[in-house]
Design a protein around this nucleic acid. Sequence first.
DNA 1: GTCTATACATGGATAGAC
DNA 2: GTCTATCCATGTATAGAC
Lengths: 213, 213
Amino acid sequence: MSASGGATRLKLLEGALRTLVEQGIAKTSARSIATTAGVNQALIFYHFGSVDELLAAACVHGAEQRVSRYRERLAALDSLTELLTFARAMHAEERAAGQVAVLGQLLAAGQTAPALAAATSAGLALWIEELEGVLTRLLAATPLAAFADPAGLARAAAASFVGIELYEGIDPEGAARALDSLEQLAVLAQALQGLGPLSQRAVTHRLRRRTRG
Amino acid sequence: MSASGGATRLKLLEGALRTLVEQGIAKTSARSIATTAGVNQALIFYHFGSVDELLAAACVHGAEQRVSRYRERLAALDSLTELLTFARAMHAEERAAGQVAVLGQLLAAGQTAPALAAATSAGLALWIEELEGVLTRLLAATPLAAFADPAGLARAAAASFVGIELYEGIDPEGAARALDSLEQLAVLAQALQGLGPLSQRAVTHRLRRRTRG
DNA sequence: GTCTATACATGGATAGAC
DNA sequence: GTCTATCCATGTATAGAC
């Protein structure tokens, strides 16, 4: 890959992401991407073979870029409460950058395009992996540790995150209200962590019994 | 609207939904819808003016159909635990019917098409409205009643539901794991409801303090 | 209300010159 | 590796006959 070739590839990857954000999957085409990227349309097929393959590569490229951005900050978190506060800040950043929107567009497209499905799954997996690590660490300090599945929760959270982001695109006020309500629920986690030993044991006991039932 | 005219309109509405499910928004066009519906392509423009207007009408039409299907069953629920169990059953039914997939496709398309955004918001609102009513009723019996916002939670749940459904389309195993983990969290609600009065009061007290902080 | 035919735009993809 | 030119499929939308 020559220097200029690498540059064009990169322009196309970034152009594909920007086009998905600005015009949506429905209007993302070889021509629209090429225009956004400022390169010749035929180069998409030279470098990536097809539009879908470019989108697939762009998805993973974008996810890598964004996830690495948060790695350090996630490692510094000390409680579920902090994680929830951080999630809202991250949401705002990702909304501005448009990366979650990209996942939403590709998630929709992937429903009926296997090649895109695989790439989107890989992109989302990068987020999930990161989140799973943090959840494993933070849940250990709560009564939830006994029965919660960090891997499952990380997947649920990531998918929900994308869903809420898509919702925000069509109803910003509703999405804000949704996020507020989740933040309020955070006090539940806080309360569980802050309970006196006796009450906490009662809760834990109760939780244990229920999981066996 | 004549009888046959109404019949064609209906064929187009149902055809639009089926096309969205089977081919995704990217391959949903006047021609593909007309083929699915078994009617002439030009009739889309006669009855709805444009493809997007047909999609908008179909979204609301589909949501009305599906939501009314659950109204009675939702009214019969007696606890948050039951609601969560029911949610999983509903998820399976909607996945089979493809209605949540439709919302996902239109949610993605709506990000950059204001007319579709409005219709999708209206369709989703039907689900939210129903859910909000149930949540308001069921949360009243828990310590969460003091600070939880049913309207916000209903919005968060609906959006998350769509997100997880989209995720299921690209990673069925991951989605199953996500849903399992949420079901396990349901024991938390169960535990809160089943706590003895003393412990429950401790939790409630704790929660109250946190919301004021 | 429905059909055929058609105009015209956009999109995927390739050939071949440079 | 990049550009121009082009082929052909698909898509939106309309006109006009029935």
